[in-house]
Design a binder for these strands. Structure first.
Lengths: 345, 345
DNA sequence: TACGTTTTGCGAAACGTTTCGACAAGCCAA
DNA sequence: TTGGCTTGTCGAAACGTTTCGCAAAACGTA
């Protein structure tokens, strides 16, 4: 690989002049500049990232903190990563995929100590997150996909949960439903702190109340078995419910099976929609399920973009974006079976 | 961040001695070594990757070439990436997620010219792949997840397609089926060169022949509509078929819908199995589908491991591994409806 | 013609490592 | 005591950039 020195020799200038010309950091006479650029082109010169980073303290490398799959990874997490990598690439940055294990903070200490990365992208953020706390304290630039309970002035891109719940409720109410149930993720060691579960739960309750819908919100399921069981409990306690919103696609499998076992049909007897599952997954069900698709790629893109903005523009007001979900209507949405007498069913 | 110089000062030795002690590249007196190590620990010293890479020409960074999603990415591709990152991390390496666009070779030229990566991990390898050709020619160390048509001496980890087809056929034959159909991926610009589609097609035909099963292998579908249509064609032309193996989960959605529309049931009237879909996806269907789950994580791990071996041990015989799939039996497999008279059905 | 000012280019230092030749000290045999 | 080895440590150079003080050249003005 040819170095800047080769370029300088070929253009018959000093190395420093070549550097200035190529980076535009100092004025260089037009003719000289042209000569240097041509020499660089002819040699196929590529600046060495390491040498550059060593002196400039900027590597243009971002790290994406990738949590160990806690509950089976989905397309969503995947899209964060690919979209972030794409966005980074477009702006001349690189993305390091950095898996996390038992001791995220120690690993973070190691990772940032390497002098390899300019900033960190954090995903699967918990309401109280030791990683973001450490990063803030250590003064390492970072942005979040998701957000902590008190994101204050921290850059982040997250789902607009308020709008998501409102959209879902509007969809159901628009079809004539008067009563709905929300199946949240199961309470686990993880989801106890998991922002999306908590925010979605709160926002659904609020949106249903706002719209005057009956609301059952204490159901929790993350597996097919749990979904089945939760559904049975629901039917026993709240037979008036005609519409279901389910967070976990795994749970939906169980719910649908339980519905079928009763001889009921979707959407004739019950409307069912997924929440925060990709359309690709939703259409794998039969019937194709309605879903509120998370803007995963958009979040990944935004997260990376914000971090780069921060790195380049230095400080400034916090960059924070809430992005709505996309409602993809499938074949699982319909008017309630008997709107008039539902309460008496 | 403290540098090697700080460590050396604190331990009252020369920088070069500190380096030797910490890396073990030269003998250092035990007492001195201890002093240096302690100083390093006290300062929380982390060697700077850039400085080290600049002189040693080794960064311990691997790039994973990530193709632009051609037909919607699945869990499989995701697992390559995460497993490769994990494996790399365990051996002290980092993984760069490097998206590809229109001109893979030019991008590769750029990427490797940066001096940032020691080696490249290539996935979604086509039978004739310009990327691997370029890499080989340029002398850049690389390994493949998948393989070209003539992998010769190139390191790779791939699915054992022969075994996969044999396992599938054995499963179906074991249930009593005498005739099967294989739904391959649709012929697209991409899949025309796509190893898995081509290898699976060939191996299924061979395995069915070997086992003495009737075989229909000219069906192709990658979407629900195509799946539905292909199924109708199959029923019209080959009513004797009692077992289906489907490559695309999207196509399976269509097939299943078409089956249901005829009033048939799986597995009562027809056995259906997925090929190269994860169990997580397979159990999203109703009934839960049998699947031959690809060893994605294993392939990612192996691919990274091989590359690192090559980087560290220098040359040696090619490292090549074929890994079998895992048969996960769901509720979609059963004995044929009427084994005796199937040909007359 | 001389002087101040601007433009243009140069050289050296620095970034934090690794590598390697040199050399002082210690030891043993002659 | 000398000479030859071994062991342990040091200093300097190198990797490929960027940065920055300086000086040479070019220009305009008095």
């Amino acid at each position: 690989m040819s170095s800047l020195r080769d370029v300088a020799e070929r253009a018959r200038v000093a190395v420093s002049t070549a550097s200035a010309a190529l980076n535009g950091t100092r004025p260089v006479a037009a003719a000289t500049k042209r000569r240097i650029e041509q020499a660089a082109a002819e040699l196929g010169y590529r600046p060495n990232v390491l040498a550059r980073g060593l002196v400039s303290k900027r590597t243009r490398i971002l790290a994406l903190l990738f949590p160990a799959p806690h509950s089976g990874f989905g397309l969503t997490e995947m899209q964060f990563a690919t979209a972030a990598a794409e966005a980074a690439k477009e702006r001349g940055y690189h993305l390091l995929l950095s898996p996390e294990h038992d001791d995220p903070v120690e690993e973070l200490r190691y990772l940032t100590g390497l002098g390899l990365v300019d900033g960190v992208l954090v995903m699967e953020v918990k309401l109280a997150d030791e990683r973001t706390e450490w990063l803030a304290e250590a003064g390492v630039p970072f942005s979040m996909i998701g957000r902590t309970g008190e994101p204050d002035a921290v850059d982040h891109a997250d789902i607009d949960f308020t709008r998501m719940a409102a959209d879902a409720v509007a969809h159901l109410a628009g079809l004539g439903h008067r009563s709905m149930a929300f199946f949240n993720h199961a309470i686990g060691a993880y989801s106890a702190q998991y922002g999306p579960a908590i925010r979605a739960g709160a926002e659904f309750a609020a949106a249903a109340g706002e719209a005057g819908l009956g609301y059952v919100g204490d159901l929790r399921a993350s597996t097919a078995d749990e979904g089945r069981e939760a559904f049975e409990r629901l039917v026993a306690a709240h037979p008036e419910v005609t519409a279901l919103a389910v967070m976990s696609d795994q749970a939906a499998v169980g719910v649908i099976a339980a519905v079928a076992e009763r001889g009921w049909q979707i959407p004739r007897d019950l409307t069912l929609m997924l929440v925060l599952s990709s359309a690709r997954v939703a259409e794998m069900f039969h019937p194709r399920l309605t879903t509120l698709e998370p803007p995963s790629a958009e979040l990944g893109r935004l997260g990376a973009g914000m971090l780069i903005d921060r790195l380049e523009d230095g400080d400034g007001e916090p960059r924070q974006r809430l992005v709505p979900c996309r409602l993809v209507v499938g074949d699982s949405s319909a008017t309630p079976r008997n709107p008039e007498s539902e309460a008496a069913r």
